[in-house]
Design a protein around this nucleic acid. Structure first.
Lengths: 222, 222
DNA sequence: CTCTTAATTATCCAACCGATTAATTGATAA
DNA sequence: TTATCAATTAATCGGTTGGATAATTAAGAG
């Protein structure tokens, strides 16, 4: 009842963020916007909801990112940056060709399975014909190490005779991503149609093994 | 100036549809709603725009389909029905196992490439976690012939020794669809990242051949 | 010709939502 | 202390949009 500071009085609030910290606020907005956009899409994503969940005013979102579109682009950039970072911890150069191919396949499957929201975000960006990615220099460049890693494995495998010649690293990357991505992105329509389990740990593990197999069968010399 | 009928006076209108025809009006709405939803998604799709392009009042949309969601579900049903219909014209039973597998692969690639709006619609439905498909009996059933067709080819191939045993028809269907679907659905983010052409007729044909190859390499006995 | 029913239109609205204006407050340096 | 500037809030606005109410009109039956 007495005139206390308003802040501590609200017991139900979910731990107010430290304010007046540019980095922190920006990051907080990005994290929550990622969830919001991955969940509801670009037109479905709501800036009011982001502001509410971030415990800030909607105006702040526009203060840091000028528009909803730019916020979405920033979210995309962050999401891809995180994936590429994880990808760099693979050390395929230390492995035999077959082991390297299998490890790459397993890593990709694991990443997509572990980050369905990333998969959703990429789907959404494709619905928008990749226009945010196309307009971001950062996003377009982020990708090169990924391919050269594969190229080296293929070269090594060809030289050693384990892998057949003429395989395009970009095509291999596409094939792997298609298989791995689909298993998460199209899970719902596929499960609905075929009453096929794609979500249980067991099913995921089986599919992961099948994809690694398929990829190896495709590149090996025979 | 004189009191003429209002209808013929509007010269600029784009050929008014024959009205008072339940079937025709319904179908017209469906066709245009398909375009609208495939283009802009569920929340992005606009009922006003649909009405305008169909030269009807928005109220009519709600008269035939009670809500935007139900309209979307009806659109999905139509889209899948058309694909399954095309699928039935394949006659895999008349072909040798290898030819059958390749033909199936090529058909699927061709269909997805020829119907990017269908691919987009399925992506969108997955963003919504397949909830419309899950709530439609028709949609869930529409799919069985597709799988049994594949199962027969596999059986025949196994018996004849051309195909290795133990391949699950649903898994094969998933693999093929993943490869074929991704080439259309994720074209934009992939092209933006890898400056890789996936849209020219040449690139499509090359990918189609690669997918058929990959599939056959996966199932053949060796 | 008229009665009934179903298809269609005209009009409106309340909620939502991205974006803006302007005021306020906290941190920092002089 | 105070002046300055950046971070944050409060309040609002204008356009959009799914959906509803109620009147109108065409088609077919008897």
């Amino acid at each position: 009842m007495a005139s206390v500071k308003k802040q501590p009085a609200r017991a139900a609030k979910p731990a107010p963020i430290k304010r007046r910290d540019r980095q922190r606020t920006r990051q907080e907005i990005l994290d929550i916007a990622f969830e919001e956009f991955a969940e509801n899409g670009l037109s479905g994503g709501n800036t009011d909801a982001i502001a509410a969940r971030a415990n800030i005013t909607k105006r702040l979102i526009f203060y840091y990112f000028n528009s909803k579109e730019e916020l979405f682009t920033a979210v995309l950039e962050m999401a891809y940056a995180e994936m590429r970072a994880a990808e760099e911890d693979l050390h395929l150069e230390a492995l035999e060709p077959e082991a390297a191919i299998r490890r790459l396949a397993e890593f990709t499957c694991d990443f997509h399975q572990a980050h369905p929201q990333f998969v959703r975000l990429v789907s959404i960006e494709n619905i928008h014909r990749g226009r945010h990615m196309a307009s971001s220099r950062r996003l377009k460049q982020m990708t090169q190490p990924s391919i050269s890693q594969i190229a080296k494995v293929l070269e090594r495998g060809e030289a050693g005779g384990a892998i057949r010649p003429g395989i395009d690293p970009i095509e291999l990357h596409m094939t792997l991503n298609a298989l791995s991505f689909f298993a998460v992105a199209n899970r719902h329509t596929f499960e609905a149609q075929f009453a096929s389990d794609m979500s249980s740990p067991k099913a995921k593990a089986r599919r992961r093994a099948a994809i690694a197999d398929l990829l190896w069968r495709y590149v090996r010399k025979d």
